[in-house]
Write a protein that binds this DNA or RNA. Structure first.
Lengths: 369, 369
DNA sequence: CAGGTAGATGAATCCTACA
DNA sequence: CTGTAGGATTCATCTACCT
């Protein structure tokens, strides 16, 4: 399946994985020959020591040599070099997607703009099940960023607006996508049962990208092919792919994986819409949005108890502080308490359950789903 | 309310709006004097076919290609200049938030890193009610990006982890925040009923930023103050603010707006505390005070291991002697161990964590304080 | 087989006071 | 400054195994 580059045409490399460094390989590919590039470059994570979960198990970080750079300047040189080759081999109406995290995406985005690409959207992959922040020192890093750009300003590009709208229950697809990370059977393991690649992307992500921004028969090139998610999904969806990958182990896995793919089957499969029953609303949200004021008093069901709202969404009652549920339970001497129906706020002399405010927020959220 | 900068201290500018260009104004402010900077810089770039310089003057009479290059270079110079001043006036343990869209955020992020700031998170503001993409040519641009960065790698920074967790109904706050855009009564209109500022940010967004990353009494500076959302929320939450704004019309609106703000009472802005902040209690204290007797046996979590208390507050286990943490870690073969939750003592046939005794000591300490 | 529980794991820039 | 040691810290999901 490994192919050889041929000047002028893509004969011999279509639907194959080319061995080698992506910059050198792309140099041998003909100009203006590729419809879409999907790139998942090294993130330059700069991990220092070890990290342990609260249960003392060790977190397996990305320690591979391919993610090590001397510094930002080194990383920038690398980025600008591969982007220049991408721009050369892209057709005039072609486009690029790049995925990254805060470690690298700002540098990639600036380099894209400097190279003359024209950003069409940045898209947020919201991870349904991200790894938590174990030490409680930052926000859960729960997303990654994709940039979608055309070859230059004003260039035509492919975008299947209606298909994406259909995929999104009939409303316009937004720039934030909720998708689970790649786990379970989809995650490729090696002979030892260890993950074969540290950063395998979910097929659902590539499904959406390729469906939205290519036509059947188009050529999709991935310069950091890894275990071949891009190739597998391209093949499923009836697109051609070209993979470039340095590591023989990754190439072998990708080849076997793609050989098992049955094209067109995916098109008949309805997409997975992860529907949540009732979106959870934090009580703190009511405070943040000004529906309740910090310092405002809430009355219990029956009016026997009072508590004061704090800015972080906790309550202060007599001798007790905590969530609306905790404070309610404590004041009632009950094992548990539904704070949403227990607590009431006063408006125009009437006591109104705070659950009314939750319904209001849910209505807004439903509009965005 | 407009203040005058004073070398060495912030006297005279605290809780005021300074007129002028933010770079020049910051130059007159003392170094290492500000706890937090929140910046909503101009996006600047090629909106509706017009090109603006950072000072908002129109760029005219240049070719498009030259324009674009000049545009980015100009914007970068401007960005790096104001970031350099921010870095100078920030306290060593201070931090910065910047908000932007794909037009500018990649350049800002790269400039932050180049200036030596250390990115802690990028945070996605998911707009509950974004403007749809009317032409159906792209994804609905439904988010903006914020970058949170400390002054340099390894610097301490303020983060009220527990408060944010409380605000999010007891689970860790993620990096994607769903909040409505600024509309309705919150949106400030001018005499004509037109919106007074094109990009007024919602107070809920600032509420979360300021609550999470400052302490009451801290100084929050906003170099692109606009109609003063940062100042209004800072005042509500018992923080000081410094605004910098060029446009007299915006300054006037902001002053009136902030004058109307009623700060929340002090009790309501104290947030859920962290265990880290509680006074340290030595295990030996429990022995000294007779809560545990020398020679008494402790059982591990799960009951598999035993150890004996010594008079000096160390433990003796199988083949090991040391602190409650060291002995626990050794017996479990773990890199570390919290002895307070690991070890249990026996009372009336029940195993009780020794942490209960620590709570008892802390309560006594609080009462006598 | 259904149902419940325990264990594993994911692109991570993940501590800090005190000697 | 560095080194040492106290002790604080996790969510959603999938697999394996047990009753």
């Amino acid at each position: 399946m490994a192919g050889t580059a041929v000047a002028g045409t893509l004969d011999g490399v279509l639907d194959s994985i080319i061995a080698g460094d992506c910059i050198e390989v792309m140099r041998r590919l003909p100009a203006a020959s590729v419809d879409l590039v999907f790139a998942d470059p090294p993130y330059n994570l700069q991990l220092k020591g070890e990290l342990h979960r609260p249960d003392n198990s060790r977190v397996e970080g990305v320690t591979e040599a391919w993610d090590r750079f001397a510094g930002f300047a080194d990383y920038d040189r690398f980025t600008r070099a591969w982007l220049a080759e991408v721009r050369r081999i892209l057709k005039p109406h072609g486009a690029i997607w790049v995925i990254g995290s805060y470690h690298n995406i700002f540098r990639v985005g600036a380099a894209l703009q400097d190279a003359g690409f024209w950003i069409l959207n940045d898209v947020i992959w919201r991870k349904a099940n991200p790894m938590p922040n174990f030490r409680g020192k930052r926000f859960t890093n729960a997303h990654e960023t994709l940039i979608w750009a055309s070859r230059e300003e004003g260039a035509r590009y492919t975008f299947h607006y209606e298909a994406l709208k259909a995929l999104n229950d009939g409303v316009q697809m937004r720039s934030d996508w909720l998708l689970p990370i790649c786990t379970g059977h989809e995650r490729i393991k090696d002979a030892d049962g260890q993950k074969a690649h540290p950063t395998q992307k979910p097929e659902a992500l590539l499904h959406r990208v390729i469906l939205a921004t290519t036509n059947p028969g188009d050529v999709v090139l991935d310069p950091f092919f890894g275990t071949g998610t891009t190739g597998a999904v391209a093949r499923m969806l009836g697109r051609h792919f070209i993979g470039i990958e340095r590591e023989p182990a990754y190439r072998r896995i990708a080849e076997e994986r793609i050989a098992r793919v049955r094209p067109f089957e995916a098109e008949s499969i309805t997409v997975q819409g992860s529907k949540r029953a009732e979106p959870r609303v934090a009580f703190g949200t009511l405070v943040e949005r000004g529906l309740l004021r910090p310092g405002e008093e809430l009355w219990s069901l029956g009016g026997r108890h009072k508590a004061k709202v704090r800015a972080d969404g906790t309550l202060v009652g007599r001798d007790v502080t905590g969530s609306i549920h905790q404070v309610g339970a404590h004041l009632e001497g009950a094992p548990s308490c539904n704070g949403w129906t227990y607590w009431h706020f006063r408006r125009d002399g009437c006591l109104i359950p705070i659950d009314v405010l939750r319904q209001q927020i849910r209505a807004e959220m439903a509009a965005t789903h």
